[in-house]
Amino acid sequence: MKNEFYIGYINKLPKQTAKTIKKSIFVLIFVFVASGVVIALHHQKVSNSKFELGQLSTIEGYYFNEPVPMIKLLEGKDIHGNHIFKSIPLVNYAKFGVEELVGIYEEENKISLQGKKVKIVGTYLYDDGKALFELTKRAESILEVSSLNDPAIKEMIQPKIEKLGVNSIKGEIVDSKCYFGAMRPGFGKTHRACAVRCISGGIPPVLAATNYSGEVNYFLIRGSEKEAINKEVLPYVAEPVRLTGELVKIDDWMVIYVNPKSGIERVKN
């Protein structure tokens, strides 16, 4: 390359330089495409959860604020003629829970929603047989509230409670909204900060525990006095933990009542 010299503002590339640059351009394009493919292949952990974004549904069911604000839908009867209910925890738009919204609604309308029949409009989130419902239009999502007069119906909708004793369960604390569909993936290290934001905003925390056969079980997390312990679980979100507390099955959800001071410990993966 004797005396070959490139000057940017003179517009012709010297011969050897042009050759090298041409080769480099091909190499670069190859490297960029190949890296795109390889890095895309690297991502494996994407969940199958769904968020019916933009698709509003109107549902009618019975409102309960324990263990978390949820609506109980009548799904039909089993072969023994027993009613089957599906309990659907409610979440607010964005990174907020519904407790505050329900409180304001109750105050403004001088009514308690507990045990009432409610009609709401919003968006479904679901995964793994569990569903959640987002009050997409916030307070305006609550369309109708009616009291139950028939004692038979009152009786029918009473939660079925099964106490399972004290248990220790290993898993990961996730924010239920993102995990069950608002974000995919909505768990693990990269989602930690977002999960903290959501749980801090009142979204119910859930322990997702994978058992030996790879099946995931879900436990709503409440304090040992049945209180919300969202703030207390924040430091433990999205990492391997063991929760110890009273295990109770309420209808189709498991709930673990944990003393936030003594019932949460970090564990190795």
Partner: peptide, 14 residues
């Protein structure tokens, strides 16, 4: 390349 491959193998990715 990245979006194409991701869309094929993870259609459910946010």
């Amino acid at each position: 390349a990245f979006v194409g491959v991701s869309a094929i193998i993870h259609p459910n990715l946010d």
